[in-house]
């Protein structure tokens, strides 16, 4: 299977950043809408009033993106009833958080087991695509969501449900796991430089690079050598 084919399966459509509607704007119309009219973000003074039972934070301003997600999960149904967020990052980072906040709270709220299945590709598809180089750095939503739901599990004593499923943290500063590396490979990363570009892995310390390189080789063999 070529990396080209994978990309088309996962994304609803590819977006030419120069012609992505919105009068030749940088991003798609959906991104533009969510960027200029962000939904559900945590306003000043709302922090004290908003009753949440889950919170997740990923990224750091040093690497260019940071995101915090607050969730109100209904214990009986385990549905996400309300959500607030704050994001430091570029246009696509803000839009992708905003769109995620809609995805998980619409139609009476998404069950957390379904929310845990959300992949960056789902968010990107809903956004109408993103320029290639923006995909990995600006879509942190699924990771923040996972972190928040884990927080909920821990707070409610359901430690056995805390999701570490197979994911091993490779870069602890940026919270990059082996799963992220697998995904990056599936999206076309072939060298460690590609990985650094896509994931910013090692941006704040090169310690994680040897392990990342090993995983890169492993997944390249697994998916692209038959």
């Amino acid at each position: 299977m070529s990396d080209e084919a994978i990309k088309k399966e996962n994304l609803s459509e590819e977006v030419n950043i120069r012609e992505a509607g919105g009068g030749g704007w940088l991003y798609s119309d959906v991104v533009k809408d969510h960027f200029f009219n962000p939904r559900n973000f945590m306003r000043y003074g709302e922090e004290e009033k908003f009753e949440f039972n889950a919170m997740g934070r990923v990224g750091s301003p040093a690497c260019g993106d940071e995101m915090v997600l607050w969730l109100k999960i209904e214990p009986e149904t385990e549905k996400i009833k309300e959500c607030r967020w704050r994001t430091f990052g570029c246009g696509s980072a803000i839009a992708s958080t905003s769109v995620l906040s809609e995805m998980i709270t619409e139609k009476d709220g998404m069950k957390i087991e379904d929310a845990l299945k959300i992949k960056p590709q789902d968010i990107i598809a809903r956004l109408g695509g993103l320029p290639d180089r923006k995909i990995h750095c600006s879509v942190l939503g699924d990771k923040a969501l996972q972190a928040a739901i884990n927080d909920y599990f821990r707070k409610t004593g359901k430690h056995e449900r805390v999701l570490t499923a197979g994911a091993k943290v490779i870069d602890s500063v940026l919270n990059i796991t082996d799963k992220d590396i697998e995904e990056a490979v599936l999206e076309g990363a072939k060298t460690i430089e590609d990985l650094q570009k896509k994931l910013k892995i090692g941006a704040l310390g090169k310690d994680s690079l040897p392990a990342a390189e090993e995983l890169l080789k492993f997944y390249l063999e697994k998916y692209f050598k038959s």
């Binding site: 200029f36 301003p61 260019g64 990052g89 570029c90 246009g91 980072a93 803000i94 750095c137």
Partner: peptide, 30 residues
Amino acid sequence: MDIEGESLLLYLDEYGIMCSTGSACTSESL
């Protein structure tokens, strides 16, 4: 402080104001 240059640039652009940023998000290299 506390905000990211590309976002700022794109908001200003909506108002017809054009400038540039040293933020990674606008560079090819990130």
